[in-house]
Each structure stands twice: as structure tokens, then as C-alpha cells.
């Protein structure tokens, strides 16, 4: 993912994800498992980005999340930036990117981002927070598959 085309696609995806996060995420809540559209976008976009690109994608995803939900921005920006950086860096492991790895990547990115966020801003009920995180991670993993497939059509192949 390079050049104006990559930046444009990433910006549009984050914009749509931020809008969907505000208006749709809570409506799709099933037994406490609500999707996090911005984390899905981070997990899929970072499969096509380098480390700096991943950090920037995470930064803007955290910025958008903090702004749209009105919560403390620091915890969202730092957790998403670190996860974006590490996710993009994970390409160095040389794993083949496919729909399955995109799904697993979606799960791992969600868990890592939420755990980092928990470290920066411990929630009132840690047990329920962890339960919701695991449930959301599964939903995000499933939703990451079509998003990755769509991005692959735009960017071509990538390695996870």
C-alpha cells in the first residue's frame, strides 16, 4: 500500500469505519459481542502497510475512536498506534496472507489493542471488559474476512 491511492483507500475505509462505529456498532451487539469497525480496518489495512504506515493507520483510527465516542483520546491513540505498528511489523514473520490469517489477525489485533487500552485506563469491571473483548475479537475476526478480501482486490497480494 503506497502512494496517493493507498492513502486514499485507507482514509476512506477509516472514515466509513468511524461512521459505522458511531451509528451501527451498538445495534449489532449480540450477547455483548459488538464489532469494532475501526479495529477491523486497522487489522486489515496493516496487512498491506509497512511499520510507519501501520503506526499512522493505528494513530488515525485511535484519533477517530477517541473523537467519536468522546472518551479519553490518549488511551485510544497510543493503544491503536502501537498495535498498528506491531501488526504491520508482523509481516516480517513471513506468513502467507490469506482469508484465514486475516481473520486470526483481526482477533489478535482486537485483543492486543483492548489489553493495551486496559493498561492505560483500567475499566471498572475488568472481568466483564475481558469477556466483551474476547467476544468482540471473534466478531472482528469474522468481519475482517470480507474487508481483507475487498482490500486485496484494491492492493493486490500481501504477506501477513
Amino acid at each position: 500500500m503506497k502512494g496517493p491511492k493507498g492513502v486514499f483507500i485507507a482514509a476512506v475505509l477509516l472514515w466509513i469505519a468511524a461512521g459505522a462505529q458511531q451509528a451501527l456498532a451498538h445495534r449489532l451487539n449480540l450477547f455483548g459481542a459488538a464489532p469494532d469497525f475501526l479495529l477491523i480496518s486497522v487489522s486489515c489495512l496493516c496487512l498491506f502497510a509497512n511499520r510507519v504506515g501501520g503506526a499512522l493507520i493505528g494513530f488515525f483510527a485511535g484519533l477517530s475512536m477517541g473523537a467519536v465516542v468522546g472518551a479519553n483520546m490518549t488511551q485510544y491513540v497510543i493503544s491503536r498506534t502501537l498495535v498498528g505498528f506491531l501488526d504491520a511489523w508482523s509481516k516480517a514473520l513471513g506468513l502467507d496472507a490469506n482469508l484465514l490469517t486475516a481473520a486470526v489477525n483481526g482477533v489478535l489485533v482486537t485483543v492486543a489493542a483492548q489489553l493495551l487500552q486496559m493498561f492505560f485506563a483500567p475499566p471498572a469491571g475488568i472481568t466483564s471488559f475481558l469477556g466483551a473483548t474476547i467476544a468482540s475479537a471473534v466478531v472482528n475476526g469474522v468481519l475482517a474476512i470480507p474487508v481483507y478480501a475487498l482490500l486485496k482486490r484494491f492492493f493486490g497480494s500481501a504477506s501477513a
Partner: peptide, 8 residues
């Protein structure tokens, strides 16, 4: 990350 702290 520092910028995130400043924005917060």
C-alpha cells in the same frame, strides 16, 4: 504516541 498524549 507523544502526540496522542498531547491530544488527550
Amino acid at each position: 504516541c507523544v502526540l496522542g498524549g498531547v491530544l488527550g
